Amino acid sequence: MSSTTGPIPELFHGLFDDAAVFPPGNLPVAEAVPAHRAHRAAWYAEAVGPLLCGASRLGELAAAVAGGAATAGDPPLGVGLVLPGGSAELGPALAAAAPFRVAGVELATRDAAEAVAELDRLLPPDVPAAVELPRELLRGDGLDEVLDVLVDSPYRAKFRTGGVVPEAFPDEAELAAFLTGCARRGLPYKCTAGLHHAVRHTDPATGFEHHGFLNVLLAAQETDPAAAAAVLAERDGAVLAKTVRELTDRQVTVIRNSFTAFGTCSIAEPLDDLAALGLLSPSPLPQEDR
Rank of each mutant, 00 (worst) to 15 (best):
S3F: 12
S3W: 13
S3H: 14
S3M: 12
T4V: 08
D17G: 04
V21Q: 04
N26H: 14
P28I: 04
H39F: 13
A47G: 02
A47H: 05
L52D: 02
L52T: 03
G54C: 06
E60V: 02
V65K: 06
A72K: 10
G73S: 08
V82E: 08
P84A: 10
G85W: 06
L90N: 09
P92F: 06
A103F: 09
V105Q: 12
V105W: 14
E106R: 14
A117H: 14
D120V: 14
P128F: 11
A129N: 12
P134T: 15
L137M: 12
L138Q: 06
D144L: 05
L150Y: 04
L150H: 00
S153Y: 10
P154S: 12
G162N: 08
A168M: 05
F169R: 07
E172A: 13
L175M: 14
L175E: 09
R184F: 00
G186L: 07
P188R: 12
Y189P: 05
H197F: 03
A198Q: 09
A205N: 11
H210W: 01
H211D: 04
L214R: 01
N215E: 03
Q221Y: 00
E222G: 00
P225K: 00
A229F: 02
A233S: 11
D236W: 08
D236Q: 11
A238K: 13
K242V: 11
L247A: 01
R250F: 05
A261E: 02
L277S: 15
P284A: 11
Q287L: 10
